[in-house]
Write a protein that binds this DNA or RNA. Structure first.
Lengths: 204, 204
DNA sequence: AAATGATTTAATCAAATGATTAAATTTTAA
DNA sequence: TTAAAATTTAATCATTTGATTAAATCATTT
């Protein structure tokens, strides 16, 4: 049993495996993804994968860390910036999520799905930033609408912005959206969602 | 190879297997669910499962049919009812989804996730009702806001209503929602979402 | 060039898993 | 009550799948 500890460097092979892992895991999820799929996708031998990453779980964990940061990374810099006003934050959250999700449409379903199954593990393993009362956005929302829990507006912004990407296959099946329409609709939403959110902020 | 065609009747054993299948598939998804899990959960022998349902796929398909109908079944009776006005439809969609999802919080993630992976199969196998231009809700939306694609409002209503259930673990991890808060927030949304949607309808 | 260490491969293992079979038991019908 | 059919079980297959191993090849250093 020769155990050689590999110090991670950005070698070509290791990167190829990780690229393939990203693709396969994102497409199929952890359970349905086979290490052989990943090996084939990256054009390397199956043993290499275990040589570099020790196990499917470890490889998955690395991908998952990236993806969680990618998903939440959009949000935190914006909501923590105390030098922008509420309206600007709304515009930025929507615009940045639409930009990012247009490039990674599978991301939200992947992240939210895997977070559900392994709630115990992931929340402890991955250091996820927390939203507290003194986050700038929360304070601004509380000041604007002291009568409404700020979490509602977060749910609204994310719901309106992220949900279409999650439900895209459903919207397709239901007959409302063919492939090219989707992109058009999403681009329209970039301007519309902030308008609606601001209207909701005023609504009594 | 003795093939006995079983005519489905609501026997106790068959129902027990299906109950267990619902539970396990919903909790783990198709790929991560093992037929042994289902057998154990239903208190029967593994062979029984194959005796009654022939295969994991067949059993899954039956559960999936149910769940798709459960998920979309809330929507169609409401949006097709041409004797209710727009505002009523909004209230009903939100209220009925919140009722249903409070009892089945895992449903949306399950359905949307499985619809994505097997888009080809499911959309052809399961007869999903289609939303067309002459659906009552669509006509009402088009009349009220001819400048906006009706699909936007559908995305908004469902996004605001369904997304919180999909993202619940994420909201937990992010530190904004402990278990009991969630139910409180959802109940608040029952009244708030219609207010916000109606405000958005008027927003220019 | 030789030696050492890193990388890659083919072959194989062991466990997990979907499915089947043959026999036993229970239920139903005559 | 008995014969036939339906139900249930234990045991077993065959395949899939994550992982390992031992050997081969390649790269780097001396």
């Amino acid at each position: 049993m020769t155990k050689k500890i590999k110090i991670e460097k950005d070698t070509s092979t290791e990167a190829k495996i990780k690229d393939a892992a990203r693709k396969v895991f994102m497409q199929k999820g952890f359970a349905a993804a086979r290490t052989r799929d990943i090996a084939e996708e990256s054009g390397i031998n199956l043993a290499l994968l275990n040589y570099y990453f020790r196990s499917k779980e470890k490889l998955f964990h690395e991908v998952m860390s990236e993806k969680i940061q990618q998903f939440f990374g959009v949000l935190f810099p914006i909501i923590n910036n105390s030098s922008t006003k509420l309206e600007t934050k709304i515009d930025l959250i929507v615009a940045n999520y639409i930009d990012m999700l247009s490039e990674n449409p599978d991301l939200p379903l992947f992240v939210l799905n895997e977070m559900k199954g392994k709630r115990g593990q992931i929340n402890k393993t991955l250091p996820i930033e927390k939203i507290t009362k003194n986050v700038s956005l929360v304070q601004q929302l509380q000041k604007r609408r002291p009568d409404i829990n700020p979490v509602h507006f977060l749910m609204n912004i994310l719901g309106m912005t992220v949900f279409p990407f999650i439900a895209r296959p459903a919207f397709g099946a239901i007959g409302i959206l063919n492939k090219s329409d989707f992109e058009t609709v999403i681009e329209e939403r970039r301007k519309l969602i902030p308008v609606w959110i601001k209207a909701a902020l005023k609504a009594k």
